[in-house]
Structures are given as structure tokens and as C-alpha cells.
Design a protein around this nucleic acid. Sequence first.
DNA 1: CGGCATCCGGACTGATACTG
DNA 2: CAGTATCAGTCCGGATGCCG
Lengths: 133, 133
Amino acid sequence: MGETGTAPVRESGSPFDVFSRQCPSRVTLEHVTGRWGSLTLGALYESGARFNELRRRVDGVSEKMLSQTLHALERDGLVHRDARLTNPPRVDYALTPLGREVASRLMGLIQLVEGRMPEVVEARDRYDAAHRT
Amino acid sequence: MGETGTAPVRESGSPFDVFSRQCPSRVTLEHVTGRWGSLTLGALYESGARFNELRRRVDGVSEKMLSQTLHALERDGLVHRDARLTNPPRVDYALTPLGREVASRLMGLIQLVEGRMPEVVEARDRYDAAHRT
DNA sequence: CGGCATCCGGACTGATACTG
DNA sequence: CAGTATCAGTCCGGATGCCG
């Protein structure tokens, strides 16, 4: 390959470098960080819950999106689904140990963003003021 | 209000609860965790860079999306843009102190996901095997 | 080099309706 | 309660072309 210093190796030597296209880890990262994925993991970090309880925690999510999100997270091994075929049916969702680790880091990020929102809002105002013609 | 334990207060008492619809922090969180936002912050965490250098680091991003992403992050005060009106033009992007904090947590998440991909892949195989009719 | 404006197909989203 | 199915609307995102 080019020896002109183009090497994009980054610090990674990982076989699962998210920065590369077509790497399976990028898909998982998108499940985790996606619009509803992050909020769903955050909601479950609090405690396990049933479907409609989760819907209430994640304000604004539709049935379809929540269902879809939970399936993706379950498939990735981050969420455990426990279904009782009783009447009425009861399905409990909870984080797996791996899911808990991921959610923990995610919560760290979420809380940082929440806590620094005043700075963000201020930055936005400055930006908007500067970019008005 | 209801004293039946419905209080959805969560651990948050924050005025910027991402779990609530219409909260500005949710928008910022989406910029940060979005498909290209997370990878862009990750790329900049390594070091500041020029536009096309960033394009190379974030494999697969289009010019348009990178530009759009950088604007959003700049507006949120996470990225600093330094433009020299020379010829040829030169524009350097770098993280702000706040951006660096956010990117740091993000990298923690990214590295966790990358490192645990074997488990994820395994979980997927199990899921797919169990859900084939 | 570092962008922005436009176009356009397809992916994604969200009501609604229906099932077990 | 816990979903799936369907369908219409939105918007994402890439390609192209032009400008400073």
C-alpha cells in the first residue's frame, strides 16, 4: 500500500474497528447509540421492565420502534427477554451483564450531556448570533 | 399529582432530562450518538484534522454528511472550526474542551463495544438459530 | 481545498388496524 | 397486555454540479 503515511491504522489493531465500513461492530454501535437504542438501554439501566412500562419511560417512542429496538438489542445479546405465556401475557425485559456494562457507559455519556447542557445552549446562541446575516 | 407511585422522575432531577420528549438535550445527544456524530467525534479525539483528512478517517462518510455533522457539533460547542482564507483554503477542526470530555466517554463506549464484539456475534448466532422456523 | 445547492430514490417512522 | 401487519409520509443520505 501507500507508504506516504496514509496508514489510517489509528490506535486500533482490533479486528472490529468501527471506523471501517462493513465492520459488524459499526452496526452494533448504531443499535446502541441509535435514537431509540440509547434511550431504551438507559431506561432498562434503571431496572428491568415490561413492554408498556418501557414505552412510558422512553417518552415519544412508538410501539413499532420500541419493539424493533428491543429485538435488535436482544439479538446483539444486550437485552434479555422473558416471556410468560399467561393470560394476560407478561413479558419482562432486562439488561444482560454485557448490556449492563454498555448501558453504564452510555449513562455516563448521557449524564455528561445533560449536565453540560447550559454550556451547549450558550454555544448555540453564540453560533446562531454569529451566523445571522 | 398522582401519589400512586407513578412518578417517572427517574434518578434525574435535571431540567434537561433526555428521556423527555421536546427536551433540547435529546437533540444534542442525537448529534453526539448519531451515525456520523459518534464516529466524527471519535476521529477528532485522536487529533484535530482538516476536512478531507476527517473524511478519510471516518470511512464511508460523504462530504455532505460530514459537513452537516461538523456544523451541528460546532453549533453545540463540541467542535472548534478554524478557517484560514488562504489559497488554497485551509480549515482545521478540533474538539473543544467540552467536546473532548464527551468524546472521551464516547470512546470508552466504542472501545467496549469493539472489545466485546465476539460475544455479540455469538449472541447473534444463537438468536438467529433459535428464531429460524 | 473546502465547501454549499439541488435533486431524487429508498430507508425509516409513525398512525392505524388487527391478532393471540 | 404484547405485540405484528400494512401503508402513507418524511427525511436521510449519496451523487452531481457549482463557487470562493
